[in-house]
Simulated assay, not measured.
Amino acid sequence: MEFTGIHHLTAVSGNIRENYRFYTQVMGMRLVKRSVNQDDVSAYHLFYADAVGSPGTDLTFFDWPVPPEKRGTHSIIRTCLRVNGQAALDWWVGHLADAGVQTQGIAEHDGRLTLEFEDTEGQRLALVDDGGAGDTPVPWDRGPVPPEYQVRGLGPIVMSVPELRMTDMVLTGVCNMRQVRRYPDPENPRNTVHVYQMGQGGPHAELHVAVQPEKPVVQPGAGGVHHVAFRTPDEEQYHAWARRLNELGVRNSGEVDRYYFRSLYFREPNGILFEIATDGPGFAVDENAETLGESVVLPPFLEPRRASIVAALKPID
């Protein structure tokens, strides 16, 4: 039993209107679900992805007007988005410059060409050449990015811990990941980044763990990451993961039905929140595929409160 890759990553925005502009108009991703945080209905939960919201392409945001994150360890520190080939990265260098986004220039990290930058709130991102690995996304033909250069999905995800031993025990002993290699930390070459692989491997199925003992503890906020979710293909394996966590004594949320997928949450020893999420049912379960993300949709258990929930949301278009 293994995860098949990254399912989605959820971060925090303190300016959701600018967030919507950046990820649709600059990054060229499609808003595939305009909903609310199911545990805090005062906040939007926006999902950006490929044209249909394929698992593994979702970058999502909670709309929380909080101060900016104070960076540190015990956190996810960079979200990588995959593109295919040197030509794609070259195109993005020019595109981001035209949008006023400063980049670090194309560099090789862990043997892959990488372009690091930040969004308007300091969310640390990178475009990584995946060489065409992983599932083929569905291009978004109404966005500003040509199909051949579009974001293909998530991965790798980079997290920071001050000490590896207990985290390694959870990643390998609980999550069945494999530590496959290591490389010098680009921020501080004296430190090491350890690469953990899921399923068949590839950048879409990797978690990179930077050991950074000199860093302060993160203070969460806008521009930071809330959690990362790993893919499990179906409900049978999802239930098996729930049993596994319980049998191993790992504190967890219990099974949670998010309507678009099934979720299971737990924290690794440094407090970073992990989620296990099913590939289905998917975002078209309550919307026509042609109009995904165009209006606020709510899971059935929130529909009776629609009027009050929608009235409290600010416009983002």
Rank of each mutant, 00 (worst) to 15 (best):
S35M: 14
G72L: 11
H227P: 00
P220K: 07
V211Y: 14
E290I: 00
R78C: 13
V228N: 12
P139M: 00
T167N: 10
D279N: 13
Y183L: 06
G14L: 09
G280E: 06
D39I: 06
T79Q: 03
P184R: 11
S295R: 15
Y183S: 13
R165C: 01
V228C: 04
I157F: 08
V310L: 14
E247W: 03
P184C: 09
S35H: 05
E121M: 15
L207A: 13
R71Y: 11
V36C: 01
K215V: 03
M177G: 07
T278M: 06
G14I: 00
T57Y: 14
L171W: 06
V161N: 13
E69S: 04
N188S: 14
M159P: 09
P146S: 10
A11S: 15
L248V: 09
L127V: 05
I272V: 15
V151P: 09
G111K: 05
L292H: 12
K33M: 10
T10G: 08
E18S: 12
Y265R: 04
I77M: 10
T172H: 04
H45Q: 12
G282M: 00
P137T: 04
K314M: 08
G94K: 01
N188A: 12
V250S: 02
L127T: 00
P147H: 06
N288R: 14
F266N: 01
L264V: 05
E69W: 03
T73G: 00
E116N: 04
S295A: 14
P189M: 12
L245M: 00
R258S: 09
L207I: 15
P189I: 14
E214M: 03
L171P: 01
N176G: 02
P300Q: 05
C80R: 09
I106L: 09
S42L: 15
P299D: 07
H95R: 14
N15Q: 06
T120Y: 01
N191Q: 07
A97I: 04
A229Y: 01
E148Y: 02
G202P: 12
P68C: 12
Y44Q: 11
I272L: 12
R251S: 11
V12A: 05
E2S: 13
E69V: 11
W92F: 11
G28K: 00
P216Q: 12
P299A: 03
A307V: 07
L46Q: 09
A87I: 08
N19A: 13
L81I: 00
A11L: 09
L81S: 00
T79N: 03
G201K: 05
H74F: 07
R181P: 08
P68H: 15
P189G: 11
R306K: 09
T167M: 14
I16Y: 00
S13Q: 13
N270Y: 02
Q197A: 14
Q212L: 08
M29A: 01
Q102N: 07
Q86V: 08
W241H: 11
R30Q: 03
D58H: 05
G131V: 07
Q212V: 15
